[in-house]
Design a protein around this nucleic acid. Sequence first.
DNA 1: AGCGCCTACCGCCAGC
DNA 2: AGGCTGGCGGTAGGCG
Length: 275
Amino acid sequence: VTQDAGIVTASAGVSLAAVALSPIGSGVDTLMSAGGPGVEAASADASLVGWVRRRAGDARRVASVCTGAFLLAASGALDGKRAATHWSVCAEFAKRFPAVRVEFDPIFVRDGSVWTSAGVTSGIDLALALVEEDLGRAAALAVARYLVVFLKRPGGQAQFSATLSLQAADDKFGALHDWINQHLAEDISLPALARQAGMSERSFSRHYADATGMTPGRAVEQLRVEAARRLLLESRLPVKRISQRCGFGSEETMRRSFARLLDVTPQDYRARFSS
DNA sequence: AGCGCCTACCGCCAGC
DNA sequence: AGGCTGGCGGTAGGCG
């Protein structure tokens, strides 16, 4: 652990779940470097860097969250690998570690046994992917279901993750939700969803509301907002581009959805949380 | 800020 | 009878 606790509390939670669930072999199984302000000092600590180099050598997997990539890179564990780190330090990272192929993709990157994530929330995805690799998709979903992810809102209130709160106990529509997330920018109208689910519109509406406690339209809106939220924090794409990518008809439509669900404008959301 | 069009939602009902 | 399905249409509210 190399960082001030508050920064990566959420991802640390899943990381611990990943470690706890991973098969115990001899030595280090998964070496994970979390990011945060402390990573600078850690990277300058020769004995710590040496320790990381040795452990990375015999660990089954190496991973980092956010700026944790700096410590891994300092130890040479990322040499010749593709890697991600937080967008605000990508340029500095690339300059400092030319042997690492930095990717600007907002989600996490896997290159063989090396996994790196761009930001804090994608660190959660990374940890869940580790669980999935070890124990299968069902286990990863189970961990996700019991993990409550809070993002702090401007008013100090908390907001559930749409993806997680939409997971019903029997996960009847899990496959559909995956499909929606992969087709956010395409036609996901009620008729399209019903077709995808293999039901009539009327039956689909009924079953969906029963299983998730939410109407299909509201659910789609939540998933779109969640995807946009992530891109706002973990990329530098202009708001307009993000609205297109997430399937909002226009920037204005996205702004209205943010007002409804989060009570902030997209710009404010980004300004408040990305730095 | 306002407005017209469109769609999602849902009550209702007939049929299986 | 009781439950489920799916078409219809009115309405509220979102979208452009």
